[in-house]
Computed example of a mutant assay.
Amino acid sequence: MSYGSDYKYIPTTSIGSGIGIELLPDLYCYTIQIVNIVLVGKPETNEFVLVDAGMPESANKIISVVEGRFKKNSRPRAIILTHGHFDHVGAVIELVEYWKIPVYAHELELPYLTGQKSYPKPDPSVEGGIVAKLSPMFPNESIDLGTNIHLLPSDGSVPHMPGFRWIHTPGHTPGHVSLFRENDRSLIVGDAFVTVKQEYLYKVITQEKEMSGPPRYLTTDWKAAKQSVEKLEALKPSVAVTGHGAPMEGNELSSNLKMLVEKFDQMAVPNYGKFVDNDRLH
Rank of each mutant, 00 (worst) to 15 (best):
F193K: 08
H85A: 11
V65A: 08
N46D: 11
A53F: 10
A268Q: 12
K209F: 12
K8Q: 15
E182M: 02
I15E: 01
P162H: 05
F164A: 08
K100F: 04
E141Q: 08
V269M: 10
N36G: 05
S238N: 14
N271Q: 12
P153S: 12
A240F: 03
P102C: 04
K100Q: 15
G273L: 08
T206Y: 00
D52V: 10
L95G: 12
I21V: 05
G156S: 07
V239C: 05
P76W: 15
A53P: 11
A78L: 02
I188Q: 07
P237I: 07
D265L: 04
V189Y: 00
R280H: 11
I37R: 06
E44G: 04
K197G: 01
V239G: 00
K42P: 02
S17V: 00
N60Y: 07
K42I: 04
I37K: 04
F164S: 07
D221A: 06
L23N: 01
V177H: 00
T195H: 02
C29H: 13
F86Q: 14
P120K: 00
N278Y: 05
L95S: 14
V189R: 00
P215Y: 03
E230Y: 02
V177M: 01
V261Q: 11
V66I: 15
D277P: 13
R280A: 03
S74P: 13
D26I: 05
P136Y: 05
S14G: 07
I101G: 12
R77W: 07
F264W: 09
E44Y: 08
I149H: 05
S228F: 06
F86G: 15
P237Y: 04
C29N: 10
G156Q: 11
N278E: 08
V38S: 05
N60R: 13
I37Y: 06
K231I: 07
P162E: 03
Y28P: 06
V241T: 05
Q266R: 12
R77M: 07
I34Q: 05
L281F: 00
T12A: 15
V158D: 02
K274R: 15
D277V: 03
T206A: 04
G163I: 10
A132Q: 02
G163E: 11
V49G: 10
T31R: 06
S14R: 03
P76D: 14
Y112E: 09
M1T: 13
V65K: 01
R280P: 05
A91V: 04
P247E: 13
G84P: 11
E252V: 15
Q33T: 13
V241K: 06
I205C: 01
H160K: 05
V38C: 12
G273C: 12
M161S: 10
